[in-house]
Simulated assay, not measured.
Amino acid sequence: MNVFIVGGTGTLGRQIVRRALDEGHHVYCFVRSPAKATFLREWGATILQGNLCAADSILEALKYAKAAVVIDASATRPTDTLTIAAVDWQGKVNLIQAAQAADIEHLIFFSIMRAQDYPQVPLMQIKHCTEDFLRESGLNYTILRPCGFFQGLIGQYAIPILENQSIWVLGESTAIAYMDTQDVAKFAVRAIDRPATYGKTFDLAGTRAWTADEIIQLCENLSGQQAKITRLPIGVLRAARQATQWFQWTWNISDRLAFTEVIASGQVFNAPMEDVYRTFDLDPNATLTLEEYLQDYFTRILRKLKELDYEKAKQKKSGRKKRSPFKSTP
């Protein structure tokens, strides 16, 4: 089947591309910068250049791909020059309207768990509004709503511990059922030819919900190192958000800070998954746990560090044995 993927260069998107290709689909990746998508072409995907903010480019690419299914895994990056409103709202409206015009059979959209509960947070409000817009579009749709990815925890917890840097813990720790992006990708690709998912919204949760303190303790146990924890009151976060709202070039930062306040709220982001696994015909026992993911990460990193230390010691020892040919014997 011809599958049109938006956001294929992202952390989640690349896993969807990889899995769709592995399952024999013809994958077309809609990207802003083909230079950053070279690895997708090497995997076997066809690269189509365009921009969600340029509606004509979407329709042109969809018609070229002759795709039956669209998977939208795109998201605004904090460093983007465009705002969240421009990409995550107007861009998604453009995509949905282009899908209507191109007679797309099925659109799979990634939202965020409990987006409807946080109308004061720009990204959550936009995701919720996009869900409603998609439901009213007349398209066959599937909405997937994960709440967090394992991959984001490496920079947030693992690396600071290894580098003896502070870990910032904000407000009251929120328990979040993170998932590996490879497991999330399974649901997206399985939905491609699964009519049982049409017109439905699915929360996606990992094997258990973890607070920041629990993740830090797990990282400490696996790395054998103690974390430096700096706890930041929620009031400081709110003040920073207000300050960044004053300047256009910091609007994206302000919106991200608002989202950060969600994960410092002390609420639980989790959901029952039995019926979801049954609908998608996936084995819950094959889902990676956070313990397994971090165990693999720390095992590989600590092994690499030992190898580097060995090489440094070897070079140092070798250097002591050598005598410079330019130095006279005393």
Rank of each mutant, 00 (worst) to 15 (best):
residue 330 P to M: 08
residue 220 E to L: 06
residue 196 A to I: 10
residue 163 E to A: 11
residue 202 F to W: 06
residue 206 G to C: 08
residue 243 A to L: 15
residue 199 G to T: 09
residue 78 P to F: 10
residue 28 Y to Q: 02
residue 229 I to F: 05
residue 187 F to M: 05
residue 188 A to P: 01
residue 237 L to N: 11
residue 253 I to P: 02
residue 133 F to T: 06
residue 100 Q to F: 09
residue 156 Q to S: 07
residue 330 P to G: 13
residue 212 A to G: 05
residue 288 L to R: 13
residue 63 K to P: 04
residue 130 T to R: 00
residue 293 Y to E: 06
residue 220 E to H: 01
residue 284 P to V: 10
residue 89 W to S: 07
residue 169 V to T: 12
residue 34 P to A: 04
residue 31 V to H: 10
residue 245 Q to T: 14
residue 193 D to N: 15
residue 172 E to C: 04
residue 183 D to T: 00
residue 176 I to S: 05
residue 175 A to H: 07
residue 99 A to W: 01
residue 75 A to N: 14
residue 46 T to P: 05
residue 269 F to R: 09
residue 19 R to A: 10
residue 137 S to V: 07
residue 27 V to L: 11
residue 224 G to S: 10
residue 109 F to E: 03
residue 3 V to L: 11
residue 192 I to G: 05
residue 206 G to R: 03
residue 154 I to P: 01
residue 177 A to G: 04
residue 139 L to S: 03
residue 29 C to L: 06
residue 233 P to V: 13
residue 12 L to R: 02
residue 21 L to S: 04
residue 75 A to Q: 09
residue 264 A to E: 03
residue 24 G to L: 10
residue 273 M to H: 02
residue 310 Y to N: 11
residue 251 W to N: 13
residue 65 A to F: 09
residue 147 C to E: 13
residue 93 V to S: 04
residue 30 F to G: 01
residue 62 L to N: 08
residue 284 P to C: 08
residue 190 R to M: 10
residue 31 V to G: 06
residue 217 Q to C: 06
residue 160 P to Q: 11
residue 269 F to L: 14
residue 183 D to N: 10
residue 2 N to S: 14
residue 268 V to K: 14
residue 125 Q to L: 12
residue 149 F to M: 14
residue 70 V to W: 04
residue 273 M to Q: 15
residue 29 C to F: 11
residue 33 S to V: 03
residue 170 L to K: 03
residue 286 A to T: 12
residue 115 A to H: 08
residue 137 S to L: 06
residue 174 T to I: 08
residue 59 L to I: 11
residue 124 M to I: 02
residue 53 C to P: 00
residue 54 A to Y: 02
residue 115 A to E: 04
residue 261 E to I: 01
residue 267 Q to T: 04
residue 105 E to K: 13
residue 131 E to R: 00
residue 129 C to R: 10
residue 267 Q to I: 01
residue 6 V to C: 13
residue 25 H to Y: 15
residue 150 F to M: 00
residue 208 R to E: 15
residue 108 I to E: 01
residue 243 A to Y: 11
residue 193 D to W: 02
residue 255 D to L: 06
residue 194 R to S: 14
residue 159 I to N: 09
residue 107 L to E: 02
residue 152 G to C: 01
residue 57 S to Y: 05
residue 308 L to V: 09
residue 110 F to A: 06
residue 29 C to D: 06
residue 256 R to H: 15
residue 243 A to N: 02
residue 316 K to G: 03
residue 97 Q to D: 15
residue 27 V to I: 12
residue 41 R to T: 14
residue 89 W to Q: 14
residue 204 L to M: 06
residue 25 H to T: 07
residue 13 G to T: 04
residue 4 F to E: 02
residue 94 N to C: 10
residue 155 G to L: 08
residue 191 A to F: 07
residue 300 R to M: 05
residue 210 W to H: 03
residue 31 V to Y: 09
residue 33 S to G: 00
residue 310 Y to I: 00
residue 305 L to R: 15
residue 176 I to V: 15
residue 293 Y to S: 07
residue 277 Y to V: 05
residue 118 Y to F: 15
residue 310 Y to C: 01
residue 206 G to A: 10
residue 138 G to K: 08
residue 60 E to K: 14
residue 326 F to Y: 15
residue 311 E to T: 00
residue 28 Y to P: 01
residue 188 A to W: 10
residue 306 K to P: 03
residue 45 A to C: 11
residue 28 Y to H: 12
residue 311 E to I: 09
residue 96 I to N: 08
residue 80 D to P: 04
residue 325 P to L: 11
